[in-house]
Simulated assay, not measured.
Amino acid sequence: MSRRASEREDRAGGPEGAPSAASQRIWLPLNALRAFEAVARERSFTAAAASLHVSQSALSRHVGRLEELIGRRLLERRPSGVALTPAGAALLPVLTGSFDRIEQTIRGLRQEGAGPRLLRVHMPPTFLTVFGVDLLKAFRAAFPGVLIDVSSSNGVGLPASRALDVAVVFDKPRVDDRVRDLLWTVSCTPACSPEVAAAAAGRSLDDFLQQAELLHVKLENEPFGVFWADYARQRGLSVDERRGLAFDTEALAVQWAMAGGGVVLIDDGTWQREVDAGRLVTVGPTVDTAYGYYLTLHPDDLHDPAIALFRSFLINRFAGGGPRPPLPPTAPAP
């Protein structure tokens, strides 16, 4: 092939003018995509404009141009705020994931040569208190070249608006664009202090729970008393799950129960040490739940060395849903 023919082929993108993969990509209006992602995330033009430090009119123009490019409405303006159309709901998680991965890559490039790898890990509060601290300590001892940035929040599923490398989440089984490794499925057993349990002697479980103070764990986007309602349904009990005290974390609810404050539903494997030590007494049968703890990450990160190490470490410790890792002899901190 002559030099001139080769140059013509390069400009055309391939043999006989075939376009290259890059030239086939549609033009992406990054500012408009960023504007839509902010409005959709905040559900408000006002809040999105403030977060991006631009005017609402500019933001509105960007979103309008993106809708023109796609040929579909992405947002609906309502008196109560902004709602996503089906097209907008399909686009938002793709954009958010893409922006997160771009940010992660840029952060990684900045850190190259600047020191150890920083791994951003999220764990629910109770998991972090009971298991996470010792797991992270053991991981750091095994892999001192990987630094850990730990965050924690209560709720179901992945926390919103957080840039994470890997997360342990409390959730139901679901199919999405994430890799999810089940660590274990959560069960529920009613438990209380020995003093409260003694008062239940000779009474039916239904009668005891109708009179006892029920202790709840609050979950974002879940109704009050969801676990007690499910337990009563499975056991055929006439318990009013709407009463009692609610706590931000299971660890706080368990501490209140051990102090004689009421009856809490515990996951046996999580709180077995307290039961064995006599600080908690189970007063009813165990039922299964739809919830579990999952190790979650993005499939694009499966080959990241630090994430792969952490994933393998945690899966080996929990043996794919088997017994929990051994706990230290001291009680967890409040």
Rank of each mutant, 00 (worst) to 15 (best):
D134S: 15
P173G: 06
Q111C: 03
L66R: 03
F131Q: 08
C192F: 09
T96Y: 02
A308H: 12
A253W: 05
G269I: 03
I148A: 06
S98H: 11
T126F: 13
F310T: 05
P299A: 03
E103C: 00
F170A: 01
D230H: 13
R279S: 02
D300S: 03
P285H: 09
T270N: 06
V130C: 01
I26K: 02
G278P: 09
R324G: 00
P332M: 02
E16M: 04
P144T: 02
S193N: 04
D207A: 15
Y294E: 01
L209D: 00
F208N: 01
G236W: 09
G261F: 11
A277V: 01
T296E: 09
G202V: 07
D165E: 04
L135C: 12
R203K: 15
H53I: 07
C188H: 15
V281E: 10
D267R: 02
T46G: 05
S193W: 11
R174H: 08
L214P: 10
D276M: 07
R311Q: 14
E76L: 13
A229S: 15
S151A: 13
W228K: 11
A197H: 07
G236Y: 10
A83N: 02
R243F: 04
W27A: 08
A200C: 14
A232T: 11
G322W: 05
Y293T: 05
V130D: 00
A201P: 05
H298T: 04
R65E: 15
D177H: 10
L33K: 02
G225K: 03
L215I: 12
I266L: 09
T282W: 10
D300Y: 00
R162Q: 14
R34L: 15
F318P: 00
L28H: 10
C192Q: 04
L66S: 03
A83P: 00
L91P: 07
R3F: 12
L309D: 10
S187R: 12
E112I: 12
H62R: 12
G284P: 15
R162S: 03
G284A: 14
F143W: 13
A199W: 11
S20K: 01
T286K: 10
L136C: 15
D181C: 12
L219Y: 13
P19Q: 04
G81K: 09
E37H: 04
M1I: 07
M123H: 13
Q56T: 04
E76C: 06
R72C: 12
E16A: 09
S60L: 07
A87V: 08
V226N: 09
Q234T: 10
R77E: 11
D276S: 10
V94I: 12
G322P: 02
M123G: 02
G292I: 02
V287I: 15
G322D: 04
R8G: 13
V287L: 04
G64I: 06
T189S: 14
G17E: 08
L75W: 07
V39P: 03
R235W: 01
H303F: 11
L327W: 01
V169E: 06
P323M: 01
V169D: 00
P334G: 03
L52S: 05
G202D: 09
F318C: 07
E250Y: 02
P190A: 13
E250R: 00
A50W: 03
A199R: 14
G157D: 01
T96V: 12
T330M: 07
G320D: 15
L75H: 05
